[in-house]
């Protein structure tokens, strides 16, 4: 049986371990597959990342709570760490690479998957985990002088921090590979942030790291005007989110005290927060598609929670009103957020 098939067969079992929140069982499954000779990369991608994608959808569809998703992710992390322990027995044959996430990025699992996959290929990997401030990264870069840095960015909220990560690396001459769902389907956002290379996944990262230059120039400064608007939005983020949540109240579609009413509080908060973060991300990267993607994501989230259509489209209207003082942001919203005027 090919190892890909074995991994495919193990996926339902692994998903059950995630559902049960049973880290021991999750670790047991990957240990067993490793012993049977399944490649670590196949496990990382076809079992762990795939199961993780599915639990993300469960939350999106309103089937799981945030806590359930966290608990399940904890099982995936434990399983990935088991693979990481296994690959550490392989010899180091290449240079040093630092892998991590910028400030405000708590989704550390994609970075851990990349770190583990690179270690399997013989790279000497230092994994910094979630939410690493640029100052701490800088100190680490001066101390260890790695060949390259890989940064993972899953949420638009972490794009400004990812830019700081890139600046810290490039000013020390170190090339950066950037990846993660918040960077979109191509290299546009990674390039705008000043990354040396873009890699949408583990296999691409493994290839990209071999073609990196040994030294890069300091990052080119970002365009001043969009940057100034983004910084203004960042400074006022909480006020803007609160204002948006006062004006846009999809929970009012349901009677107070009903499970529907209380059940969508987290989703509504996330929609407000992510929409405004996406506006910042679009300003920073010049890539308005981030707004279209966020609009589609918010729509799916709200529709799954049976929010009536007029209250879904009201988000676009309220965002437009909120961004009146930010001309570039408002223009991006009009051209990329369906229904925004």
């Amino acid at each position: 049986m090919s190892t890909t098939t074995e991994a495919g067969l193990a996926l339902p079992r692994f998903e059950r371990a995630l559902t049960a929140g049973d880290a021991g069982q999750g670790v047991g499954i990957v240990d067993e597959l490793l012993d049977r000779g399944v490649e670590p990369t196949v496990l990382l991608l076809d079992v762990i990342s795939e199961a993780q994608r599915r639990i993300g959808q469960r939350w999106q569809r309103g089937e799981w709570s945030v806590a359930q998703e966290h608990i399940a992710t904890g099982v995936s992390v434990a399983a990935t760490e088991a693979i990481a322990r296994w690959v550490r027995r392989l010899p180091v044959t290449r240079g040093r690479i630092v892998v991590g996430c910028a400030e405000r990025e708590w989704h550390s699992l994609p970075a851990l998957v990349i770190a583990t996959g690179l270690r399997e290929r013989g790279w000497n990997v230092a994994y910094l985990g979630a939410c690493t401030p640029a100052g701490r990264l800088s100190a680490y870069l001066h101390d260890s002088g790695p060949e390259a840095v890989a940064v993972s960015c899953s949420t638009a909220w972490a794009l400004p921090g990812t830019r700081q990560f890139v600046e810290a690396c490039a000013s020390a001459g170190i090339p950066v590979i950037a990846g993660g769902t918040a960077l979109g389907p191509d290299g546009t956002r990674a390039r705008a942030l000043g990354a040396t290379a873009w890699a949408p996944g583990l296999r691409e990262a493994v290839d990209a790291v071999k073609t990196l230059p040994s030294v890069v120039e300091p990052a080119t400064p970002l365009a001043a005007e969009p940057l100034a608007e983004q910084q203004g939005l960042e400074l006022n983020h909480h006020t803007l989110v609160e204002t948006l949540r006062r004006r846009w109240r999809p929970q009012d579609a349901f009677a107070e005290g009903t499970p529907e009413h209380s059940g969508i509080a987290v989703a509504v908060g996330d929609c407000a927060d992510q929409s405004l973060s996406a506006v910042q991300g679009a300003l920073l990267t010049g890539d308005g598609r981030l707004l279209g993607d966020t609009a589609a994501w918010a729509r799916a989230l709200l529709s799954a929670r049976r929010v009536p259509e007029p209250r879904v489209t009201a988000l676009a209207t309220e965002l437009g009103l909120l961004l009146r003082d930010y001309p570039r942001a408002a223009a991006l919203l009009r051209s990329h957020w369906p229904g925004a005027a």
């Binding site: 590979i177 389907p185 191509d186 290299g187 546009t188 990674a190 390039r191 990354a195 040396t196 290379a197 873009w198 890699a199 949408p200 691409e204 290839d207 990209a208 073609t211 990196l212 230059p213 890069v216 120039e217 080119t220």
Partner: peptide, 16 residues
């Protein structure tokens, strides 16, 4: 080469 952007991105010109 200064910049090796990944699969779909294509290389970014090196600053002069």
């Amino acid at each position: 080469m200064d910049v090796a952007l990944g699969p779909a991105g294509g290389p970014v010109p090196r600053p002069t």
